[in-house]
């Protein structure tokens, strides 16, 4: 009887351990396969992959050439600099737009709206978070992009001063596909993530602490700024990283709104560009037609770079959160 129970206990424990290790195994397998697939591309492309703009698959119909033991079409030369830059730039723009708006929305929902309106706003945030990215992409390409190009971009372009860096905001404003439109679409996509997470965090601030601030004669806004928000600061940083992760990896919407221009960096804020994820999805078909398989190896290398950037962002966020939580804030410490 006892023996039976012990065996059952061991079986349960073993099963749970096996189940718990699945995510780890999946990640390990993913990284190994990507590494193996990317290795020929890493050897042939070299460091130049990160430093130049060209995107030349070479001639798929000519006889393959072998360099450093890697078989590839003649004339193949890949540079991912514009892709990496485009990924970072569009995500940065999305963050600049979505973080303040998301935090503001969350504060409004928690502090100012009556309960019923607040729960309705929460519902819409969740719906917004669940809209498929292809829908955002289509809307961005057909409606938002052209509207921005017609009404917003010219205003910014006309008023941006002719100074280094700010010069980037001047010049031709395009037809709607490009960095600016992509950043705005991305921002709208990650807004609900940041707003909903921040809202949930703010609701965790103990009532007595907020009341303590109000009882001291602070206004609602002051109490939110001095007490409520600092209480959840690290958690909000985590929410922002969550949003950044989504922005960095977002594929479909960017493939539709960016203009997917390969082989060149954007000339200004409104120019067409592309990102790593959008390039992988838009180049997959033609890469499969490379008989040497080298184009696919390059796709794997791109995927590896994207994975590395995302991991780096997460690690960085954890380091920042760890250093901030040195003041021992009670909630929202994790990512």
């Amino acid at each position: 009887m006892l023996r039976g129970r012990i065996t059952a206990e061991q079986v349960t424990r073993g099963t749970l351990r096996a189940l718990a290790s699945i995510p780890l195994a999946a990640l390990a397998a993913l990284v190994v396969i990507l590494l193996v697939q990317a290795l020929p591309a890493v050897r042939y492309n070299g460091l130049g992959f990160f430093t130049h703009d060209a995107w030349l698959p070479g001639s798929f119909y000519a006889d393959p050439v072998t360099t450093h033991g890697v078989s590839h079409p003649p004339g193949a030369s890949y540079g991912a600099l514009p892709l990496i830059a485009g990924t970072l730039e569009s995500s940065l723009l999305a963050m600049v737009l979505a973080v303040p708006v998301g935090i503001g929305t969350a504060m409004l929902v928690v502090e100012k709206l009556p309960a019923r309106l607040s729960s309705a706003a929460g519902f819409f945030l969740e719906v917004l978070a669940g809209v498929p990215s292809v829908v955002y992409g289509l809307w961005g390409a057909l409606t938002l992009g052209p509207w921005l190009a017609r009404h917003v971009s010219p205003v910014i372009a006309a008023h941006a001063p002719d100074l280094p860096i700010l010069r980037f905001f001047r010049g031709a404003t395009g037809a709607g596909e490009g960095l600016f439109a992509a950043g705005v679409v991305l921002g709208i996509m990650i807004l609900p993530i940041i707003a909903a997470t921040t809202r949930d965090l703010l609701r965790q601030v103990p009532r007595q602490t907020v009341e303590g601030a109000l009882a001291l004669g602070l206004t609602d806004a002051e109490s939110m700024r001095m007490v409520g928000f600092p209480w959840v600061r690290t958690g909000v940083l985590g929410a922002a990283v969550l949003g950044l992760g989504r922005a960095l990896g977002e594929t479909m919407a960017l493939a539709m709104v960016s203009g997917t221009v390969l082989g060149a960096s954007p000339h200004n804020f409104y120019d067409t560009f592309t990102t790593i994820a959008a390039t992988i999805v838009s180049q997959l078909d033609s890469s499969l037609t490379d008989g040497t398989g080298f184009a696919m190896h390059t796709m794997a290398e791109l995927a590896l770079v994207l994975l590395a950037i995302t991991l780096l962002v997460n690690v960085l966020a954890r380091v920042i959160i760890h250093s901030v939580s040195g003041t021992a804030l009670p909630v929202g410490r994790g990512v």
Binding site: P206, Q208, T209, E211, G212, A213, L214, A215, L216, G217, L218, M226, V227, P230, W231, R233, T327, L329, P330
Partner: peptide, 26 residues
């Protein structure tokens, strides 16, 4: 009114800021 009629609560409710900033928050 709340400045002149202060309040102390059942459980300690310090603010998430330094000890010094807590004292001078109000």
């Amino acid at each position: 009114l709340r400045r002149r009629v202060g309040m102390v609560f059942q459980r300690p409710n310090p603010f998430p800021m330094s000890i010094r900033d807590n004292v001078v928050a109000g």
